[in-house]
Simulated scan of single mutants.
Amino acid sequence: MRVYLPSTLPGLARVAKAGELGPAPLTGFAVTPSLIEWYVSGDTEELEYVALTEAARASLRMLAVDRADGVPVPPRRVVVAAEVPDSAVSVGQDLEERARVRLSQPVPLATMASVHVDDEEAAADIEAAIAALPAADQGDDDAQFTVDGAEAHELMWYATQEIPDLLS
């Protein structure tokens, strides 16, 4: 199963050093039966894009948590796409996050298909979205508009062999 795992650039550096994304359990996003049922008219590629977008939203939240903890993390969302055995994936019944899955084992670098990262040009919008998250969570429509603005930026695609160059 193709799973999209949220991360950050420091998290990706840890993956490169350790040779895996972990420890388990991990939260990821995938094309689940619930997502297929909800997004009736979509083909597999569209559904995978929805899962990727959900993972990018989770990456934004990871950035916000790191910043709140005083970690100087670059304002770039990161999503790792990996092929994971179905037996390692459990699908929840969360109707709000239909694509959410849990992985019961770490994800080896060798099973990663690609990495998706914001271009540096997105930094200002990502910074604004990080700052607006608390107000958006409280129902502020203007703040939610700012958070949604981060999604206007398409994540760049990188092969796993490009991870060292991406991190330098």
Results as ranks from 00 to 15, higher is better:
residue 84 V to F: 01
residue 85 P to D: 05
residue 85 P to L: 13
residue 85 P to Y: 01
residue 87 S to Q: 15
residue 87 S to N: 03
residue 88 A to S: 13
residue 88 A to C: 11
residue 89 V to R: 02
residue 89 V to G: 04
residue 89 V to M: 07
residue 89 V to K: 00
residue 90 S to M: 04
residue 91 V to S: 07
residue 92 G to D: 00
residue 92 G to H: 01
residue 93 Q to D: 02
residue 93 Q to W: 00
residue 97 E to Y: 09
residue 97 E to P: 03
residue 98 R to S: 12
residue 99 A to V: 15
residue 100 R to F: 01
residue 100 R to C: 14
residue 102 R to L: 08
residue 103 L to G: 07
residue 103 L to R: 01
residue 104 S to P: 05
residue 104 S to I: 06
residue 104 S to E: 06
residue 107 V to N: 00
residue 109 L to H: 02
residue 109 L to W: 03
residue 109 L to A: 14
residue 110 A to D: 14
residue 111 T to A: 08
residue 114 S to H: 07
residue 115 V to H: 10
residue 115 V to N: 00
residue 116 H to Q: 09
residue 118 D to K: 00
residue 126 I to K: 05
residue 126 I to Q: 04
residue 127 E to S: 15
residue 127 E to L: 07
residue 130 I to A: 05
residue 130 I to H: 10
residue 131 A to I: 07
residue 132 A to P: 04
residue 132 A to G: 14
residue 134 P to G: 11
residue 135 A to D: 02
residue 136 A to Y: 03
residue 138 Q to Y: 15
residue 139 G to M: 05
residue 140 D to H: 08
residue 143 A to S: 03
residue 144 Q to N: 14
residue 145 F to M: 04
residue 147 V to A: 00
residue 152 A to Y: 08
residue 157 W to K: 13
residue 158 Y to A: 12
residue 160 T to P: 06
residue 160 T to M: 02
residue 161 Q to C: 10
